[in-house]
């Protein structure tokens, strides 16, 4: 099956995946409110896209959900458990994060990077097999012995995804995972993610990618939720105009029935 034929309607999702509930979460830096009382929910095993213009608080919200930032208020529940109240290591066993363009100076092999996903877990003889399986999932098992620094941007991003898979999370948080990837890798990466059946919250810049791959989208503006729901309900001209300041025309993708947006300046 090629990437472009990927069915966009999910046949079924893993039934044991937990839902994510974000309730009234706020976070501020230097006295400025960046995330302002955000509430959203991600149904079990589905992918929700986090959209919004630059500076709307997408990355900050993701980091707050991940526990990297301590929220000023609100709660983050995964399957009913309060992530904020968990020990860091316990949280890392349930939540994996792929950040945008995270790189390193030290000489590392691809497999070393993927094995980092086992850090929060007890070391075991099965770790290497899990890491290789993670690489297999993203189609990179043959590159396990390669030097990280020789990889392209798309390959690096897929290795990070393999690392996150190897972490065996119940929740996957992605911060603009398709940034700087060519169109093939953009589609491939989101296809991999969807196929995992892991509850996923992904910040995305490209509204069309979100429309094509997400089960739901949440639009942030100024740190608040401006709209939320299915892509076809949320990605409408009024919302795009008020949040992004551009005019949008909505079409229908003839292959998938998903919305396709074209933009013009106001």
């Amino acid at each position: 099956m090629t990437v472009l034929d990927t069915p966009v309607v999910r046949p079924s999702v893993a039934s044991d995946a937990p839902p994510l509930e974000v309730a009234d979460v706020s976070w501020s830096a230097d006295g400025r409110l960046i995330v302002d009382g955000v509430g959203l929910s991600v149904p079990p095993g589905t992918m929700t896209g986090l959209l919004g213009p630059n500076g709307s608080g997408k990355s900050s919200l993701l980091r707050t959900v991940a526990g990297t930032y301590r929220p000023d208020g609100g709660r983050v529940l995964l399957g009913g458990d309060d992530l904020g109240a968990m020990r860091r290591r316990d949280r890392a066993r349930r939540v994996a994060v792929v950040e945008q363009e995270s790189t390193t100076d030290v000489p590392l092999q691809v497999l070393d990077v993927v094995l980092l996903g086992r850090t929060p877990h007890r070391a075991s003889a099965a770790d290497e097999a899990l890491a290789l399986a993670g690489l297999e999932t993203v189609g990179m098992r043959d590159l396990a012995g390669r030097d990280w620094h020789t990889l392209s941007g798309g390959e690096r991003q897929r290795v990070h995804l393999a690392r996150a898979i190897t972490q065996q999370p119940e929740l996957l948080l992605l911060d603009e995972p398709t940034n700087h990837l060519d169109i093939h890798y953009q589609l491939a990466l989101l296809t991999f993610v969807r196929s995992l059946g892991v509850t996923t919250l992904a910040a995305l810049h490209d509204l069309n990618l979100a429309a094509a791959y997400c089960d739901q989208v949440v639009v942030l503006a100024g740190g608040r939720v401006a709209a939320a729901g299915a892509p076809s309900e949320v990605l409408v001209p009024d919302v795009v105009r008020s949040v992004f300041g551009v005019d949008a025309d909505i079409h229908v993708n003839p292959r998938t029935g998903r919305p396709v947006l074209t933009f013009s300046p106001l």
């Binding site: 990297t68 950040e99 995270s102």
Partner: peptide
């Protein structure tokens, strides 16, 4: 290896 915030998401204080 990949910085503070990655280390933090891997469960490191």
């Amino acid at each position: 290896a990949f910085g503070d915030s990655t280390a933090s998401t891997l469960g490191i204080n």
